[in-house]
Simulated scan of single mutants.
Amino acid sequence: MIRAMQVCAQHRWTQAPADTVVLDFDDRHRRRMAMTGTRGLAFLLDLENAVVLRGGDALVLEDGRLIEVVAAPEPLVEIRGSDPHHLVRVAWHLGNRHLPAQITARGLRIRRDHVIEAMVRGLGARVIEIEAPFDPEGGAYAGGGHAPESGPHEHAVHDHSSHDHGDHHHHDEHCDHDHQHGQSHAHDHK
């Protein structure tokens, strides 16, 4: 089976993809996994370290072809506050529970969880059920590796004291960008 051994960062590639994989948040945190693209191309994701794949990344196959990563819609809730201060207060409570949270222009997004939703409502926030790709913040230790042109590169918020922070991805001639590696941001979740 052909292997994908490298990741090319979000939209930093120009070659047409040979296929596409549509993955939810959990399936985008991998090191090794057999996958089949939407057009039927079977391959083995075989990375040196577990990485956080982002929608728009490309997996580089051994023969140079690219597989586009698309973030699948998931059941989420969008949390809206009465004003920015209120939303920051809610965000603090979510962060205090180490919950992955995505920040949007309109509010915060988390995975559906009736207990957390009740807590957020108790804080006076509005909770709206949605289906959307989940792309949570990375936190202070996520690093700044390959930020998209429009904003920061984000990862799940969690404790960093107990797992490896290896390289996020490897570059080759298929990736059309440069970036610096300070603290790297790969997380061995599985």
Score class of each variant (00 low, 15 high):
residue 64 G to D: 04
residue 124 G to E: 09
residue 25 F to Q: 12
residue 27 D to L: 12
residue 149 E to N: 15
residue 2 I to Y: 13
residue 109 R to F: 00
residue 13 W to E: 03
residue 92 W to T: 10
residue 7 V to H: 12
residue 104 T to K: 09
residue 83 D to W: 01
residue 84 P to F: 01
residue 169 H to T: 04
residue 159 D to G: 14
residue 141 Y to A: 08
residue 23 L to K: 02
residue 140 A to K: 15
residue 103 I to Q: 11
residue 21 V to H: 07
residue 176 D to S: 13
residue 132 A to H: 05
residue 168 H to V: 12
residue 50 A to I: 05
residue 27 D to W: 14
residue 144 G to N: 14
residue 178 D to F: 01
residue 141 Y to E: 06
residue 67 I to H: 04
residue 97 R to V: 09
residue 141 Y to T: 07
residue 122 G to P: 01
residue 174 H to S: 15
residue 8 C to D: 00
residue 115 V to T: 11
residue 144 G to W: 13
residue 55 G to S: 15
residue 53 L to G: 04
residue 39 R to N: 03
residue 172 D to Y: 09
residue 7 V to W: 09
residue 163 H to Q: 11
residue 68 E to Q: 15
residue 119 M to Q: 13
residue 55 G to W: 06
residue 52 V to C: 05
residue 123 L to R: 04
residue 67 I to W: 10
residue 66 L to P: 04
residue 166 G to H: 13
residue 137 E to K: 10
residue 80 R to T: 00
residue 53 L to A: 06
residue 71 A to T: 08
residue 176 D to E: 07
residue 101 A to G: 04
residue 59 L to C: 09
residue 42 A to F: 11
residue 63 D to W: 09
residue 65 R to A: 11
residue 98 H to D: 10
residue 84 P to C: 02
residue 138 G to L: 05
residue 23 L to N: 07
residue 91 A to D: 02
residue 143 G to H: 14
residue 115 V to Q: 02
residue 35 M to L: 15
residue 180 Q to N: 02
residue 167 D to C: 07
residue 53 L to K: 03
residue 182 G to C: 06
residue 151 G to R: 05
residue 45 L to D: 07
residue 90 V to A: 15
residue 53 L to R: 05
residue 184 S to I: 03
residue 3 R to Y: 12
residue 181 H to F: 04
residue 32 R to W: 04
residue 72 A to Q: 12
residue 82 S to C: 00
residue 84 P to W: 01
residue 40 G to V: 12
residue 81 G to W: 05
residue 89 R to G: 07
residue 97 R to I: 05
residue 113 D to V: 03
residue 83 D to L: 00
residue 51 V to S: 15
residue 51 V to H: 11
residue 177 H to K: 00
residue 87 L to E: 00
residue 106 R to I: 08
residue 23 L to G: 07
residue 27 D to P: 00
residue 53 L to T: 06
residue 79 I to S: 13
residue 8 C to R: 02
residue 77 V to F: 01
residue 129 E to Y: 10
residue 168 H to I: 08
residue 165 H to Y: 14
residue 4 A to C: 10
residue 26 D to S: 10
residue 134 F to R: 06
residue 83 D to N: 03
residue 61 L to Q: 12
residue 38 T to N: 08
residue 39 R to Y: 00
residue 3 R to P: 00
residue 43 F to C: 09
residue 85 H to C: 00
residue 157 V to N: 01
residue 49 N to W: 12
residue 52 V to F: 08
residue 187 H to M: 13
residue 17 P to D: 07
residue 59 L to F: 01
residue 5 M to I: 12
residue 36 T to G: 06
residue 186 A to N: 11
residue 109 R to D: 03
residue 61 L to M: 15
residue 54 R to H: 08
residue 94 L to Q: 08
residue 71 A to H: 04
residue 41 L to E: 13
residue 66 L to M: 14
residue 104 T to A: 02
residue 122 G to M: 05
